[in-house]
């Protein structure tokens, strides 16, 4: 559904949606920076946690800027837009991406199941985290399947 929103048959509309998504991500990234400057210094967090928040804010902001710049450039350059549309909507590329995502999901599930056997002997938060991940995967699969069964 998200893929269709950002890569629909009307490519101009998809690009305009990407602009909105880029703007939203930029806000999130900037909010992350604001938190890092205003909240994190007095929070008593470990160095690795501080580094994570700064890294995440930087990553989200950079990603948003790249997304915004690319979408804005493509909206004003028809020849580049045609090339990008073909690359973004090419059915073989879409098939490859979906198959890779399917494999990654299944692989992550199998690894999580294997790790659960280790996590029963590990601290409880680690077990809860892994169990929560598996639950999230299972529930999202069931809901997505139910949605697609009705839709298709």
């Amino acid at each position: 559904m998200l893929v269709n929103l950002l890569n629909g048959p009307d490519y101009n509309r998809s690009l305009r949606r990407r602009l909105w998504l880029g703007a939203a991500l930029l806000l999130i990234g900037l909010a992350g920076f604001a938190c890092w400057f205003l909240v994190v210094p007095g929070s008593g967090l470990d160095d690795h946690a501080r580094g994570f928040y700064l890294g995440a804010a930087t990553g989200v902001t950079l990603g948003a800027v790249i997304l915004l710049a690319r979408a804005a450039w493509l909206l004003t350059h028809p020849a580049a837009r045609k090339r990008a549309q073909i690359e973004d909507t090419d059915e073989r590329e879409v098939h490859i991406t979906r198959t890779a995502a399917q494999f990654a999901g299944l692989f992550t599930f199998v690894v999580t199941v294997a790790l659960l056997f280790w996590a029963v002997a590990a601290p409880l938060p680690a077990f809860k985290l892994l169990f929560g991940l598996m639950l999230c995967y299972g529930l999202s699969f069931v809901f997505a399947r139910a949605y697609l069964s009705k839709k298709l």
Binding site: Q85, I86, E87, T89, D90, E91, R92, E93, H95
Partner: peptide, 21 residues
């Protein structure tokens, strides 16, 4: 409206086209 790589894959039989393509 596909990439040249898709045509190469179709011609070599590595990829089957959708009904639309």
């Amino acid at each position: 409206d596909v990439t040249r790589q898709t045509i190469i894959s179709l011609e070599s039989g590595r990829y089957n086209a959708s009904l639309l393509l």
